[in-house]
Each structure stands twice: as C-alpha cells, then as structure tokens.
Design a protein around this nucleic acid. Sequence first.
DNA 1: AGCCAGGGTCTGC
DNA 2: GCAGACCATGGC
Length: 283
Amino acid sequence: MNYKSSSVHGADLHIDGLEHFFLPDILECGQAFRWTADSTGRYHGVAWGYPLTLEQQDDTLILFDTTPEEFDTIWKPYLDLERDYGEIKALFQTDDTLRQAMTYAAGTRVLRQEPWETLCCFILSQNSNIKRIQGMVDRFATSFGAQISPGIHAFPTPESIAALSLEDLAPVRAGFRGKYLLDAAHRVADGTVSLTAPYTLPLAEAREHLMQIKGVGPKVADCVLLFGFSRLECFPKDVWINRVLDTFYPQGFPAEFAPVAGLAQQYLFHFARNNSELLTLEK
DNA sequence: AGCCAGGGTCTGC
DNA sequence: GCAGACCATGGC
C-alpha cells in the first residue's frame, strides 16, 4: 500500500503514512508543467480542471481545500496512489544500474494527467527545456483557458484552440511549435485523433495514432502515452536515455522490465543528468 | 556570446 | 532507410 490512512481537517485532507512519494520528485521532474512551488514549499497547480495546493511534511501529504470525494475521483488517481511502487522498485533492485539510479528520484511517480494537456505540453517540449516549457504552457493556459477562480485557469479545450489562428497563438511565444498545436487541436476536435483509444490500443498502434499529428514524433508520442495515458510499458528515448542505454545496456534494456519500463526510464533520466561523467558522450 | 534545450520535418542521397 | 540543414526562442 502507498499510504496508511486519510483524515479530514476542516477543508483540508491529510494523507498519512506515505511511501515512495516525494513532491519535488513528482512535480518538478519534467512530466508535468503546471505546478509551481511557493516560498513555503507548497505546490500550486491545476489538473483535470481542478485547482489544488499541496504540501508534504515527511510521510504526510496535505491537500488544501478539497474533499474526500474529490480526492477519490481526481487526486488519488492523478497522484497514482493506487499503484504499488514498492513492488516495482523491488524488481528494479535486482538490476545494478537501476538500483543506483533509483536513489536520484526515489519518490517519483507517473502522474495520470489529462491526455489533451499532456499532448500539448510535449508538443511544446520539443527542442526546448523544462523552464521554458513551463513558461509556454503557462501563457497558453492563461491566454486561452477558462478562468476557474481568480488568476487560475483551466487548460484550454481542443475546441477553443481549433477556433484560433496562428496569429492568435502568438502570445504563447511557441515559435515553430504553434502550427503543431493547431494541427493537434483540429484533429482532436474533428475526431481524426481519439484521446480515449490510446488507453487501450496496442502500443504500436497507439503511437501511430498520435503520430498522425504534425509535430508529434516517436519521443513526443511516447511521453504522451506514458504521462497522459499511464502506459507504463512506454519508454521515451531522448539523448540522455540513449546515452544510458549505450553505456549500461549495450545488449538492450532487460525484457523483464518491459511492462514497467516507463518508470525505469524516469529513474534513469535523472540518474543520467546527475552523472553525465559516467556516460559515453560521443554521438 | 554562444551553446543547448526531455525533437520533428523536410530534403537529398 | 538515413544523414544533415533548418526551425524560433529563451535560459544558462
């Protein structure tokens, strides 16, 4: 189990006895882009149309201004609190590289994000960096998302984006990615691309389905499948992961980890970025 | 100042 | 199929 109990404190909810859970690992690892930490360490964000403030104190997670019902339907699945990370990590312990890698992001989890939001974010991610992606996503949501409370915006809908022109999108400062956002919105709005089918399609077909969209290649498709559709068998390959594979898995990534390779990818990504001197950097 | 960023498209072999 | 130019822009 991932936590022992939950309790209501006024308008807040406390989740106690957390395991394998650390907010900075989860919210700042480059899988989600709408969470920001304030000076007290609390995180503010929006997901599935709901705003939330989060704070972690040791093994207790505090969700401010929410209800047990909202926790059960939105935040428990969003934070992937139903998955047994202990079991998966025990499997990874059998691998020397993964055992070491897991210490660099021990509390990460694969969020269950909204597919459309994840699609847009990773279209915007291409040839960019996490800081700038956050800026583009914030301008996108602020400019075109419905205001759900003062200063807080829901993520824009595909329909609302499909009605825009490239010039309308200028405030996002997305550069060449703007036209890709519009293509994604058009295809989702007219039904060419389904945002439910990839939950269940065979992986190769799910990738091809998303890659119909201009600006969506293998890496973006895999990130959307992993972080937006909870397809943990997906293993996005960027330059860092390729260096890890070259250095530590020249015979290929072990097949026994295939069903949860996407979680391994998370640990390996952060391990790589913190230990570049260990990697073969040619090519 | 210059490099690189959680890539993808388009063109030319 | 595969390499290489090119894409816009900001963060470091």
